[in-house]
Design a protein around this nucleic acid. Structure first.
Length: 842
RNA sequence: GCCGAAGUGGCGGAACAGGCAGACGCGCACGACUCAAAAUCGUGUUCCGUGAGGAGUGAGGGUUCGAUUCCCUCCUUCGGCACCA
């Protein structure tokens, strides 16, 4: 075998053979430890991106390594196929999303096959096919039955001209106008479906037993945003109730609950602020303030969340004319409406303590509201509300706080703070408040006013209300005969008959929910559908589940830290509590890859013209070279700009491997390799086993760039050994075999070709066990020890590996170079750092 | 503003026990082969210095016999959150 390397020929040949033989089929095998390696599935845009290659081929290499290590490895692939792009394309071009999606899946499957990855295609799942979304619907019903799905009014962007809701990306410009008619968009409350993610907030905060990057854990922790404090109940002053419809109602009906992290500052509350959307705004507003409040509410509704939440924005607000009673001291304090208080966090109402909160301070100064200090920093002049220039937010001693004056306050939160603990206990005793916890995490809004998604399997009846579709009627399929009008309304709503159905409870006329589910719902359980994609008695075959779950390694982009990964964790826990899944977490280990940027260092985009197409690279260089280069050219977790010149180094390496392997294999089979010398053979074996040791560790640790550089280094050594011609045939055979085994996960085709054709070994290299490191062979005979004088390198000693530290020290002191730098002085100290370095201090 | 990550040659990066800084590769230079070029092979390539030597891992300080690695302060870049009560 001395033909030239032809990547097209060997890649086509082996991909076909592997497929025909089912080489990568993963079946339940209780005799082997299982390993579920999962990489995030793509959206079928119709074109595989270099980013997909960058994410998937190292994941594949590691899955292959684990397989060689003796694990029964499952490495599946599929498509997250519902979503907006297909629907937008349908509105523009009239091509049905189903047709477009199926075409794209066919095309992308081919592109994915060109990677030569070990995907078990029998387990492919496509989320937009009825056999899949039947179970997405089924899961919705399980969540509903377990009280985790509910309906609530929620604000959405709405175009009053088109009379429709808009997705966030359909709202354009700083003035927030409709993409189609340029009418300014308003917020509108719509009834929508939510999942109770918040009821799992504390469970989601625990990462026990999970090998996830610190970065992702921090991101999720911040996103959940647990905050400890207290809630306190403020009543509206009796003369401030402007609700004629409920004359004579008791005060308690209008109790306002506030959340605060600083109940210790309650005596310093000089006013209250409620959100413009707060239900009690109208009750509190006096007739003379009505017009101003109304205008303010309208303005707030027009603003985007981003505008409204901008930190540097000047505080705005309007006085309602109404007052509340501070329950700790009976003080009557004014209630303002301001947009810096968000209805979506806490209770939408706060007590304002301007002396000890920056935002309240800014607000008080602007509107001339009183500032009363109630925490005095120790050893400092007394705070004075009239002259303070900023809020004091630190610890100290409580003052002006009735029975609590003199109590210590520190920087800790919740119960850890003696001031908070004391006040909260008293509040609870008096029935005016208690310790409380609030989260930033919101419930998951899953309704989308869209066609191309999984239908929400709910039916609304005028008499029986909302009820789930009976499970035996699933799936509720999407109608195909819909019209693509650019109305912005979901075609499901406009379809003449689809929504008409019978109530599952009373049998009377009823309507289906016409909203569809967020696609994150589909991707929250795809790892389960892979287990048994054709199973029809449930979402997955329990036998497959028991063997394969949980996912051992999950790989993908960090951009999914707060959305997909959080939803998947929630989904798993909710279904576990419903008795459907098992265990604390769905994914034990998580690793994130970085991003391949364009050659200009910018993010790749069609408009910038800096997109690198993997298909072109594969056709020029071959999949093996592209795989190897993607693993080599950057740290996997960091990513880097693409370098089209850099790939030449990998091209040369692959060619040099081919040349050396075919030539040396030829020499071996024709007896041209002599007995060599014992030292020469030992030297070659040492290099091989040292590389094996390093490379094994690098596969384990996801350090793909040093796997390839380690292979390159060893190849250079093998060329030198060949030049020296002093290694025997056995050492060479081992070197060639181990080399191919080590490169097989990176470059599966060329490794298979050389293994079977050049070395004549039995097919397939990918079913071979990983070789164990021969520690004795890897051991150095001689070691080089750097010798420093005062920390500066002055000489290097080469000594036998078994030399004693005393011998090494004596040799170091005898060194000419060392003596020169000692300048006749006597060393004060000689440090012998094991057998790694000597430092002589004078 | 808060949280997190990262700053090492012309470039991507390596150094995984606090112990030889710059592995491997790109690029570049020189040489061999060639009429020539490409390809290939070989040699060199952190900076300053002819040299001995000196400096050097974003900046400054500290701990240590010894710091890219540990600690403190600061700067820059990137990512996330952003009036969260």
């Amino acid at each position: 075998m001395s033909k030239a390397y032809n990547h097209k020929e060997i890649e086509a040949k082996w991909q076909q053979k592997w497929e025909a033989d089912g080489l990568y089929h993963a079946n339940i095998d209780p005799s082997k430890p299982k390993y579920y390696a999962l990489t995030m599935l793509p959206y079928p845009s119709g074109d595989l991106h270099i980013g997909h290659w960058y994410a998937m081929t190292p994941s594949d290499a590691r899955a292959r390594y684990m397989r060689m290590k003796g694990y029964n490895v499952l490495f599946p692939m599929g498509f997250d196929a519902f979503g907006l792009p297909a629907e937008n394309a349908a509105i523009k071009s009239g091509i049905h999303p189903m047709i477009r999606t199926r075409d794209n899946v066919v095309r992308m499957r081919q592109q994915l096959r060109s990677m030569g990855a070990m995907f078990d295609w029998r387990r492919e799942a496509v989320s937009s096919e009825p056999e899949y979304y039947r179970w997405t619907e089924w899961f919705f019903i399980q969540l509903y039955k377990n009280g985790l799905a509910y309906r609530k009014k929620s604000p959405v962007d709405f175009c009053p001209h088109c009379n429709t809701t808009l997705a966030r990306e359909q709202v354009w410009g700083d003035d927030r106008h409709c993409e189609r008619c340029s009418t300014p968009v308003i917020k509108k409350d719509l009834e929508q479906w939510f999942f109770r993610t918040t009821s799992y907030a504390d469970d989601l905060l625990s990462y026990e037993g999970m090998d996830w990057p610190e970065r992702v854990r921090v991101l999720q922790t911040n996103w959940i945003g647990k905050s400890e404090g207290a809630e306190v109940y403020f009543e509206i002053a009796p003369d401030s109730i402007n609700d004629t419809s409920k004359a004579g109602a008791s005060n308690n009906e209008y109790r306002m609950t506030i959340f605060t992290t600083r109940p210790d500052t309650l005596w310093g509350a000089t006013f209250m602020v409620i959100s413009p959307e707060h239900p009690l705004v109208d009750v509190l507003t006096t007739p003379e303030n009505k017009a101003a409040i109304h205008a303010y509410k309208l303005a707030a509704a027009r603003q985007s969340d981003i505008e409204r939440e901008a930190v540097d924005k000047e505080k705005t607000g309007v006085f309602t004319g109404g007052y509340a009673i501070n329950p700790v001291n009976g003080a009557k304090i004014p209630v303002w409406v301001a947009d810096y208080v968000l209805m979506s966090y806490g209770t939408g109402a706060i007590m304002a303590v301007p002396a000890h909160d920056e935002r309240d301070f800014a607000f008080a100064r602007k509107f001339n509201l009183p500032i009363i200090p109630v925490i005095q920093p120790e050893g400092e002049p007394d705070l004075d509300g009239a002259t303070m220039t900023e809020a004091y937010t630190g610890g100290g001693v409580m003052v002006n706080s009735a029975r609590f004056s003199g109590t210590q306050v520190n920087d800790k939160k919740g119960k850890e703070n003696p001031g908070i603990l004391a006040v909260a206990g008293w509040l609870e005793e008096k029935g005016i408040g208690k310790l409380a916890v609030t989260y930033k995490l919101r419930d998951w809004l899953i309704s989308r006013q869209r066609y191309w998604g999984s239908p929400i399997p709910m039916i609304h009846c005028q008499t029986c209300g909302w009820n789930p579709v009976p499970e035996e009627q699933l799936p509720i399929t999407l109608p195909e005969d819909v019209e693509w009008k650019p109305t912005g309304e979901s075609p499901l709503k406009l379809h003449p008959t689809w929504k008409n159905t019978a109530c599952p409870v009373c049998g009377g006329a009823a309507e289906r929910e016409t909203d569809t589910m967020d696609t994150f719902m589909c991707s929250s359980w795809y790892h389960l559908r892979y287990l048994s994609p054709t199973y029809d008695k449930g979402p997955f075959d329990p036998q497959e589940y028991d063997y394969w779950m949980p996912v051992d390694t999950y790989t993908g982009g960090i951009e999914h830290a707060n959305m997909h990964l959080m939803y998947t964790r929630f989904f798993h826990k909710a279904m576990r509590d419903a008795g459907i899944t098992k265990g604390r977490e769905p994914m034990v280990q998580l690793r994130n890859q970085g991003m391949v940027l364009g050659e200009d260092g910018d993010k790749m985009s069609k408009s910038k013209g800096n997109v690198i197409a993997p298909d072109d690279l594969v056709s020029v260089y071959g999949a093996d070279t592209v795989r190897a280069y993607l693993m080599f050219f950057a740290r996997w977790d960091m990513g880097a700009p693409w370098d089209s010149k850099g790939i030449e180094g990998t091209v040369r390496w692959v060619r040099r491997v081919w040349t050396l392997m075919t030539e040396v294999a030829g020499d071996l089979s024709e007896g041209r390799v002599g007995a060599g010398t014992e030292a020469g053979s030992r030297e070659l074996r040492r290099k091989v086993h040292q590389a094996l040791k390093r490379i094994s560790r690098d596969y384990q640790e996801f350090e793909f760039n040093t796997i390839v550089s380690g292979l390159m280094t060893l190849l250079n050594e093998m060329y030198k050994a060949r030049e020296a011609a002093n290694a025997d045939a056995a050492a060479w055979r081992e070197a060639l075999e181990v080399y191919l085994l080590m490169m097989a996960p990176v470059t599966p085709h060329i490794a298979e070709e050389l293994w079977t054709e050049a070395l004549g070994k039995p097919y397939s290299i990918h079913a071979q066990p990983w070789r164990e490191v021969d520690e004795a062979a890897a051991k150095d005979d001689e070691i080089t020890i750097p010798v420093q004088v005062n920390g500066k390198l002055r000489d290097r000693l080469t000594v036998p590996a078994e030399a004693s530290e005393a011998e090494i020290e004596a040799l170091a002191l005898a060194s000419e170079a060392v003596k020169r730098h000692l300048e006749g002085k006597t060393p004060k100290k000689v440090i012998v750092a094991q057998k790694r370095l000597i430092n002589i201090v004078v």
